[in-house]
Amino acid sequence: MPGVFEDTPWVRKDSLVIAHRLRTYYTIKPGLFAKPRYVKAVDDISLSIDRGITLAIVGESGSGKTTLGRTLIRLLEPISGEVYFDGNDITHMKEEELKKIGFRRRVSMVFQDPYSSLNPFHSIHFILEEPLMVQGISMKEREERIYRALEEVKLTPPEDFVNKYPHMLSGGQRQRVAIARAIITDPDYIVADEPVSMLDASIRVEILTILKDIQQRHKMAFMYITHDISTAKYFSDYILIMYAGQFAEYGPFRDVVKNPLHPYAQSLIEAIPDPDPSNRLRERKVAPGEPPNLANPPTGCRFHPRCPYAMDICKKQEPPVVEARPGVFVKCWLYVKR
C-alpha cells in the first residue's frame, strides 16, 4: 500500500507530480515605506498526479489555477509547502539543479493563446527544433523527431508545414504546433493552460482529440487547467475545483460533476448550459456576486459571502478538508462531523 500524506490523504506519496500544502503569494507594495501586502493566489493546495492520469484544475479567473500550474513546473517559487517531481523535492531548487535532474526536459507546457506563444520570426521548423538543440540532440535525430511530432498533431504532410511561419497558419494549426513543441522532448508531464479556450467550437474538439490521443499513447501525467468543465470532461480522470486561491473539492471527475458537494462546485456546475431548447424557460440557481479580491479575501471560508448555506462558523473559521464521500474531498463546514 503506497503511503499518503497524513494531513492530506488524497495525495499519494508515490505519484509523479506532488504538491503538498502549497502556497504561492504575490507581493504588492502599496508605497515605498508601506508594509508589503500579499495576494494569496495559491493558498494551501495539495494534489498528486500519476503517470497516465489527467487532473483537471477548474476555477474562475482569479482563482489561482494558472499560478498553481506555473508553480508546479517551477516557473514560480512557492513561499511554503513542497513540490515533488519523480521523488525529488524541487520546491526551492535552482535552475541548474532542475536541469541536472532533467526536469526541464521532462516537463512542458501548452499555453492558452497560440497567437502569442509562438515567436512570429521563427519558422515552425525552428520552433520545434530549438528545445532539441538545447539538449544537444544530433541533427539527424532532430529532423526525425520534428516530423514525428508534426504527424502526431496531425499537421500532415509535415513537409508542408516545416518551412511555414506562425502567421501563415490558422489558430487551430498554431495550437497544434504549440502542442508539437510541448511533446517533442518526450516529456513525462504536461501542463495545458486553457489550451482550447481561444478557439472556435468546431476546431476545439479536434484539439481535444489530439491531446487525448497523445496523453493516452505516451502515458503522461497531464494537468488540464480550465474554466470550462464541459471540455475537461472529455479526458480528465480527476478534478480539483479551486475558489479564490483555495481548495474547494477534489475527486474522480465524473463522480464530482454528477454529484458536487461544495456549494461553490454546485453553483459552478449548475451555471454551465448544455444545448437544450428548454433552458430558456428556467432560471439557473447560481450563487450571486463575484469572486473576492485575493489581496483582501473574506475571513473564514472565502465563499461564505456568496454561499446559500453559510453558517456562523463559516464567517469565523476556515473550514478543514474532509472526505465527504469515499474518494471525494471537500473543504466545507457542511460536511464536518461535529
Partner: peptide
C-alpha cells in the same frame, strides 16, 4: 456544429468539422 459542442450532463461522442 451541434455534434462538436461538449455536453456536461449527457454522454455523446464529439466530432468536428474538418477544414477551416
Amino acid at each position: 456544429l451541434i455534434s462538436s459542442v461538449p455536453t456536461l450532463r449527457t454522454d455523446k461522442t464529439l466530432s468536428f468539422i474538418p477544414g477551416e
